[in-house]
Nucleic acid binder design. Structure first.
Lengths: 249, 249
DNA sequence: CTTTTCTTTTGATCTGCATCAAAGCAGACC
DNA sequence: GGTCTGCTTTGATGCAGATCAAAAGAAAAG
C-alpha cells in the first residue's frame, strides 16, 4: 500500500507505518503525533507463529513494520483459503469490532507496530485525517480483494501462478523503490503450500505450473525461492489481465 | 448491511439509506442533515441497464434505495466474475478516487440515492460521524469479500449454490425484518447465469445443482425463481460453513 | 393465438486440476 | 559426517465441473 508523498518519516523504527506517517503529515498537528506515540507499542512474532486466531479478541490495530503475515480462513474439514497477505506498511485490525473473523499468522519473522484500540478509536474521532487515511486504505484493500476474487473464480492455474508472481514482484519492487520494468530478482516469501492457499489450488499444481513457467523461459529459479523475471511484460501476458498498466495495489 | 439501531428514518423515500440515517442520528447535528439534503438526488435505472462501466468517472457516491445491482469484472476473452451484489441500503462509490474498477449494472429496476462526490467529501472532513459510518460499512464489505473468497477458492459446486441461496434468504429476511429461522419463501433476484457469475461456475452447473437440491428436498421451486426453504438448518449443513450462527452480513 | 426470443433444463463427452503415492533435496541438529 | 524432518518435484489415475449440443419452457411481441 503506497505511502502518501506528502508525508515524511521521522524515524527508522517504523518508517513505513502508514498510520504514523499520517500523524506526522505536514498538514496535521504535532499534538496528534504525541498522542499516537503514547498508545503505540511493538510486538514481534517468529516465523510460523500465530498472531491471533479467528474468533479471538484483538485489542489493538496494527501495521506491519517488517516481515510478512497472512490472513486465512479454514473450513471444518481443513480446506484453507488465504484471504489476505500483509506486507510491510499494510494495516490489520478493525476499529469498531473486537473479534477477528480469520486467523492471522506470521509467515516470516514479523514486527508489528500496534495501537491500543480504545485510545486509537478516540483519536480517530477527534482527528479526521487518521480516519480518512484508514478509509482510503480499506477501500484499496477492498479493490485488491475484488481483483483476487476474479483470480479465484475465473483464472486457470497458469494464470493464477503468473498473477501471483507478478503481484509479489510488483510489491517487492515498490517496497524497494525500484521502478516497474526490466529485470526483476526477488525471493518468494511463501512456500508452495502457502501459494496454493492464496490461489485456491493444491501445492502439487502450484509446483507443476512453476516448473512449466520455468521451462517456457518466463521465470528463472535459483533454489526454489529465488526468482528472476527476465521479461516482465511476457509474464504479464500469462496472467489473463488487461496489461494496460492501470493496476491497483 | 444492517442499519444502526439508534438511527431513525424520517421519510419513506430513502428509508434504508445508511448515509442519510447517519445524518439524522440522534447524536448528530441537524445541520448535517440539511447539508446532506442539499447534495442529494435520486437516479433510476431499468433492469439490465449499466450504471457505470469500468474505467468511467463516477462523480457521485450512492446508496441503493430499491432494486438490485451487481459489480462485475470481465476478462478480455469474456470470462466474467461478479465481485459485488448490492441490495437496498448497500453503498457504492469511492470517496477519494474518481474512476471505478468494475462494471456496475442494474439487475432489476433500480433507484439509487446519490451524493455529489466533492461536497460529500467535504462533509466527511467536517463531520467525523459520516466518515466513521462509511469506514464501518467498508470494513463489513471487506469481511463479506473474504467470505466470498473462501467460497470461490475452496467450496464445491453444491456448497457454492447452497451458500448463495442461504445468503439471499438471509438478506431478504433481514430486509423484511423477519427472523432468521423457520420456513423461508422468496424470489431469486438473479438468473442462472448471474448466479454462475457470482459463484465462479457455469450456468449449466448451477442449473444441475439446483435440480439436485430440489430432488434432495432442501429447496422447493415454484417456476424457476420462487424458492421455499423448508428447513434452513438443513440447507446450512450443505454450505460447508461452521453453522454456529456467528455469521456476518 | 402465434411467433420470436430468452431462459432453463438435460444429455453426452472432454479436460484441468485434484488425489494418491513415492522419490528427490536441502537445511537443522546431533 | 550422518540422520532427521520438512519442503518440493514428479508420476499415475480419477473425477468434478466445463464444454458442446439440443430440446423444453416461459415470457415478450406481433
Amino acid at each position: 500500500m503506497a505511502v502518501h508523498q506528502d508525508l515524511r518519516a521521522t524515524n527508522v523504527d517504523c518508517a513505513d507505518c502508514p498510520i504514523r506517517h499520517r500523524a506526522v503529515c505536514a498538514r496535521c498537528e504535532t499534538e496528534e503525533l504525541a498522542r499516537l506515540e503514547q498508545i503505540k507499542y511493538y510486538r514481534s512474532f517468529q516465523a510460523g507463529q500465530p498472531v491471533v486466531w479467528s474468533g479471538d479478541r484483538m485489542e489493538y490495530v496494527a501495521s506491519v513494520v517488517s516481515g510478512i503475515a497472512t490472513l486465512t480462513q479454514t473450513m471444518e474439514d481443513g480446506r484453507r483459503q488465504m484471504v489476505g497477505l500483509l506486507l510491510p506498511s499494510d494495516f490489520v485490525g478493525r476499529p469498531g469490532r473486537d473479534s477477528v473473523a480469520y486467523d492471522v499468522t506470521a509467515v516470516t519473522d514479523l514486527v508489528m507496530c500496534c495501537f491500543r484500540k480504545k485510545p486509537f478509536e478516540e483519536l480517530m474521532l477527534s482527528t479526521p485525517h487518521v480516519g480518512q487515511r484508514l478509509l482510503e486504505m480499506t477501500l484499496d484493500e477492498l479493490d485488491a480483494a475484488r481483483e483476487w476474487m476474479l483470480l479465484l473464480g475465473r483464472k486457470t492455474a497458469r494464470e493464477k501462478i503468473s498473477s501471483l508472481i507478478a503481484i509479489i514482484a510488483r510489491r517487492d519492487a515498490s517496497l524497494r523503490q525500484r521502478k516497474v520494468s526490466g529485470r526483476f530478482v526477488f525471493d518468494l516469501p511463501l512456500t508452495r503450500e502457502e501459494m496454493a492457499d492464496y490461489l485456491g489450488l493444491t501445492l502439487e499444481t502450484v509446483s507443476r505450473q512453476i516448473t512449466a513457467l520455468k521451462k517456457d523461459g518466463l521465470i528463472e529459479l535459483e533454489g526454489n525461492r529465488n526468482v528472476t523475471i527476465p521479461d516482465f511484460d511476457a509474464l504479464l501476458d500469462q496472467t489473463g489481465d488487461d496489461n494496460d498498466g492501470g493496476f491497483l495495489v
